Computed example of a mutant assay.
Amino acid sequence: MKRAILMMLLVFGLVLAYQVLPTQNSLPEAGNRENGSINLNETLGPIVPAENASPLITLNKRVYSPNDTMELTIVNSGKTNLTTGYAFKLYRLENGTWKEVPLNLMFIEIAVIIEPGKSWEQRINLKDLNLEPGHYRIEKTVVVTDPANEVSMGIKAWAEFEVRG
């Protein structure tokens, strides 16, 4: 009995793999490739149109002291809702490379929906981050959902700033 079930699962897996995995004939013609890569819009269709995916992060200042409060604003200039939250990542530029700054913070998990033409502001107390002087980048994940095909895509939106003093 166990062998029969195992054999049925194996056959089912092979049939499923045959149906799901692309074949060479399903890929675009070699003439449609640029630089040896495959255009995913040709194989999968557009995931989220570019005009729908336009989050913008702005900061109230370019230079902060370690004790300032940063005002981060996400502006939705696109045609569809954006979703984000309070979590963020922080990077410091060191020798030409962005290094993630460990944050000893906990973030509440609340989905913030930003409608087209609207914005959302988050206040961040830099004193809680214990930042040394330097060049930083704050990064947030913003999810764009295309209502036509109900496909979502996460976008990393960021802004750079300096800490002095």
Rank of each mutant, 00 (worst) to 15 (best):
P66M: 01
E29C: 15
G85C: 05
V15P: 02
M106E: 13
I108F: 14
K127M: 14
A4F: 09
D68A: 07
V151A: 12
N25S: 15
W98M: 03
T23E: 06
E51P: 03
S77F: 05
V163T: 06
P102K: 08
K118N: 08
R92M: 04
E162Q: 14
N41M: 13
K140P: 08
D68P: 04
N25H: 06
F161K: 12
G31A: 15
E71G: 07
I114A: 02
N52K: 11
N67K: 11
L82F: 00
Q19E: 09
I108E: 11
N32K: 15
E139R: 10
I74M: 00
L21N: 03
E51G: 10
R137I: 13
Y91P: 02
E109Q: 11
L126D: 04
G13C: 08
A17P: 05
P55I: 14
S152R: 01
T23I: 01
L72N: 05
V143H: 02
A30F: 14
W98H: 01
T69G: 03
R123H: 13
A87M: 07
F12L: 09
K89M: 12
G31T: 15
N149E: 09
K99C: 02
G78K: 00
N104L: 03
L131C: 10
L6W: 02
K99N: 01
A53T: 09
L10T: 14
L59N: 06
